[in-house]
Design a protein around this nucleic acid. Sequence first.
DNA 1: GTGGTCTAGACCACA
DNA 2: GTGGTCTAGACCACA
Lengths: 123, 123, 123, 123
Amino acid sequence: MFVIDNSSKTPIYEQIKTQILALVSSGVLKPGDKLPSLRSLSSSMSLNINTIKKVFSELENDGVIISVLGSGSYVSDNAVRNPKILEKAENELTEALRSAKSVGVTKEEVLSLVEKIYEEEIR
Amino acid sequence: MFVIDNSSKTPIYEQIKTQILALVSSGVLKPGDKLPSLRSLSSSMSLNINTIKKVFSELENDGVIISVLGSGSYVSDNAVRNPKILEKAENELTEALRSAKSVGVTKEEVLSLVEKIYEEEIR
Amino acid sequence: MFVIDNSSKTPIYEQIKTQILALVSSGVLKPGDKLPSLRSLSSSMSLNINTIKKVFSELENDGVIISVLGSGSYVSDNAVRNPKILEKAENELTEALRSAKSVGVTKEEVLSLVEKIYEEEIR
Amino acid sequence: MFVIDNSSKTPIYEQIKTQILALVSSGVLKPGDKLPSLRSLSSSMSLNINTIKKVFSELENDGVIISVLGSGSYVSDNAVRNPKILEKAENELTEALRSAKSVGVTKEEVLSLVEKIYEEEIR
DNA sequence: GTGGTCTAGACCACA
DNA sequence: GTGGTCTAGACCACA
């Protein structure tokens, strides 16, 4: 389902959230689509159900999905290029850029990295 | 001395570490320079000495400073553009870029952000 | 679990670290294996949890283990004959040899000591 | 006078002690020779006098030198291949060998290191 | 004075 | 349950 890197310092719930967001913004998941249930996701991925709960509650909080009691969770209408998500990504990118600049990474090095990333296939 | 944002999710010791690294790479702190003592730093910042110890021990581990028992801590000879530090910054930047791309931030938006950051005064 | 010599000048955390490294390189602990939790180790050894934390954080820094928040600590994939660890051991051996030579220990005495050590059972 | 490596984790007094022991066992300093005074040594090396005091008191304790109140310190008659010193060097070497063995350094690697060290010029 | 080790304990985020 | 951060304070070795 999703690829989890256990050796990463990024929490598992963040890794899954990022991958769901990528599916939404790439159009694989469209507004109105139903997501798998908490239980099916957690059992199929052998994860603690609390981990998946955290993913879904954050996504709902961000306005990307809507959970309907007794029915399931659905991609919301304004999920694509959702303002909260975009702002958060930009803030994180800003921090990473400032940090890189402050330790001496040059603008040229950053630009070539940007080129490289944007040429990559979507994973 | 250093600016601490207590509301940040970034640990205090990371914030201080980042600022010391910036001082080193900007040349304010040069190889051989003596850093303030654990005690003077912790008391002037109203932080516990163990928090500062963590900062210094991480910096020593990264090869940026050298701590000498009974004498003090000094900027190491190969502190500037230190490979470990650069690699870490680039890895974090790569992650932030991939994440931004995956949620729909365009390459143009990224490039204009890069321009903006690299025009900023060093803080 | 581990043998601690309180009268030794070697810090407790170093003693434990050394013994974990020996378990890893002898194959008793294999990549992927889970280490005991901080709490269980510290309570079973009657040591403060912070002492064990220091052991684990050094081992993680050396690339021997990986600590995962909420899950536990695991032997990393490249733990065996880890370059950092080998280099450190060789540097310490070099120092000890130079020091022994400088005070008049003969090469023959050293060679017979090496034979003796490498015939010892693994402790 | 003596070479001090400030970036070493070996205390300065140990570094000096080792070098004095090397001078004795190589015959540069002979039994009966007078050592420089505490003050002249500490001032010429820009070291704290406590550091040199520690060196001399350890050497006296080991039976390598004899301090005569009001006169100075002299290399003792049984300074060469002094039993305490040899035993200490061998103990440290044993520890380093056991440690190297335990992290996977092979006997062959150790032997080639021994050859290399014993071919080195005395420093 | 300096940094290093160890204990004790609170509080947090994550699984 | 797990590890991570931070405070508080004792005691040590070294310069």
